[in-house]
Amino acid sequence: MTRPSIVLRSLVIFYVGALLALPLGFVFQQALSHGWNQFWFALHDHAMDLAIELSLKVVILAVPLNVLFGVGVSMWIVRHPSPLSRFIDVIIDIPLAISPIIVGLILELAYAQNGWFGSVFAATGLRIMFSYPAIVLASVFVSLPLVSRQVIPLLREVGDHQEQTAATLGAKPSRIFFTITMRSIAWAAAYGVTLTLARVLGEYGAVLIVSGNIALITQTLTLNIGANFESFNAYQGFVGALLLALVSVIVLVFIGVARHRLERKRHVSFV
């Protein structure tokens, strides 16, 4: 092994260790520091259980919404390019570029009872801010480009000759989409889904502002962890953090598999 490579390896190991492994290990150690009985008891904390339930409800709606939007907008940008779609292609990355706190503030401005759209909804008796819809809205917003950024390059690479061939064979657009297009982009979309899932579960800033962070009502798991730390209930916070970390590990494994499949597909397609 050459000297630079030893140095480089040590650096990477140190970096990853200090940034990732050590804190993560600390979370595990703290969460289990009071023994299994205490851990089991903490798992059944009422506020945390409600927070987990809310987080899952948000994921269940936000992820499919993001897939529908992501695939749809990708098809539009790649297959029907126009000045407008090129503009969308550029601004779709905005949620990644601006701070989630700002996203939260923008949404509050727009959807509060006296905001631009909020007043419209208020007239129908529907309350957006500080409730479940607001959390979903914020989650969808911050993860907006995660699916389309995976799907767009693949759609470009695959091209439209397969789709056009299917059309000359008599297939309708819907059939072409499900039998040809969707089959080519399935793994890219799956990868986007796992990224979205991780982002939605972990989102803090935007959700903090739009939800109002009301315990037992609009507190997601991430918010619940934060609240526990702030109210000097660190142990409960570590237990929540451990759960979130475990979910992240599972999601990471999925990402790894999806990416592997995706790369194999790309490789294969150019043999």
Binding site: Q162, Q164, T165, A166
Partner: peptide, 16 residues
């Protein structure tokens, strides 16, 4: 899809 014309692309466009 309604013209009943067979079309072959230069890259053959196989359904991969």
């Amino acid at each position: 899809r309604d013209r009943h014309i067979g079309f072959c692309f230069q890259d053959y466009a196989p359904f991969r």
